[in-house]
Design a protein around this nucleic acid. Structure first.
Length: 221
DNA sequence: AACCAGGAGAGAG
DNA sequence: CTCTCTCATGGT
C-alpha cells in the first residue's frame, strides 16, 4: 500500500531530482530529475553538509548558505575544519538558524569523515547497519540526517522518514496513528519495497518517494 | 504577529 | 521508552 502511494505521487509530480547540487555556472543549487548517477567526493560532501544545515530549517535558506560557501571559496574540508575561517563560515550559514551548533555538527562530521568515513561511506562497502551506526555516533547526526546522507550522498538504499512522512501516511490512512517510531516506520516501508524492486529500482524509489512526500506536503499548507 | 521549516541532544520521569 | 526544553533565523 505504500508502493501505491509512491506511484500515485510519481504520476502527479514526476521525478524530483534530489539532491540539488551547486552549479558553478549558474551559481545556484540545481535539481536533476531522472539523474541517479553516483556522486563525486565533493558532491557527496555537499549533500552531507546540506543535510545538517536543513535540520528543522526550510531548504531555500540552505541553498543560499551553500551557494555562499562556494562563492567565498570556503567549501573545502580544510577550511571548514580550521578555526581560522569560523567567522566567515558562520556568516555563510547564519540564515539557516542554529548556526552555532550546526557549525560544530559539520566539524564533527568532517572530523569523522577524514578519519574513517572516507573509507566506509562510499559504495556502501560495509554493511548498511554498520554505516548507520557509526554515523549516529556523531554528535549532531540523528536518524533522518544519517539516512539522508547515505541515500542521497552515497546511493545506499534506505527509506528516509521525516515528520511529513508520518503526517502524510496518517492523512492517507496508510497509518492509523501518527505516533510511530522512526525505525519502525522505515523498516515497514523498506520490507514492502524490497519485495517488489531490485536494488537499482529500490534506490530510485527511496530517492523519489521521500522527495515526493516533501513536495506534496509543502504544496498543501 | 504567531507559527513553522527536508531535527537533534540532553535531562527527567 | 516517552515527554519537555533548547538551539535561531526568516518567510508567511
Amino acid at each position: 500500500m505504500f508502493i501505491e502511494l509512491y506511484e500515485l505521487l510519481l504520476n502527479v509530480y514526476g521525478p524530483q531530482g534530489w539532491w540539488p547540487l551547486y552549479c558553478s555556472k549558474t551559481k545556484k543549487l540545481q535539481y536533476h530529475p531522472g539523474c541517479y548517477r553516483s556522486l563525486k567526493e565533493k558532491e557527496a560532501l555537499e549533500v552531507c553538509i546540506g543535510a545538517i544545515l536543513t535540520q528543522n530549517t526550510s531548504w531555500n535558506k540552505v541553498e543560499s548558505a551553500i551557494a555562499l560557501l562556494h562563492k567565498n571559496k570556503l567549501f573545502s574540508i580544510k577550511k571548514l575544519l580550521s578555526d581560522d575561517f569560523k567567522p566567515d563560515i558562520l556568516r555563510c550559514i547564519h540564515s539557516c538558524g542554529y548556526y552555532n551548533q550546526k557549525y560544530v555538527y559539520i566539524k564533527n562530521f568532517l572530523e569523522w569523515y577524514v578519519k574513517e568515513g572516507k573509507h566506509t561511506l562510499p559504495k556502501g562497502r560495509r554493511d548498511t547497519q554498520q554505516i548507520r551506526k557509526s554515523l549516529l555516533a556523531i554528535k549532531g547526526i540523528g536518524r533522518e540526517t544519517a539516512d539522508s546522507m547515505m541515500l542521497y550522498g552515497y546511493n545506499i538504499p534506505v527509506f528516509v522518514v521525516d515528520s511529513y512522512t508520518k503526517r502524510y501516511f496518517f492523512q492517507t490512512g496508510a497509518l492509523d496513528k501518527e505516533e510511530i517510531s522512526y525505525d519502525t516506520l522505515r523498516l515497514t516501508v523498506e520490507s514492502e519495497f524490497q519485495e517488489s524492486f531490485d536494488r537499482k529500482k529500490l534506490h530510485v524509489a527511496y530517492n523519489e518517494f521521500h522527495a515526493l512526500i516533501v513536495r506534496h506536503m509543502k504544496n498543501r499548507i
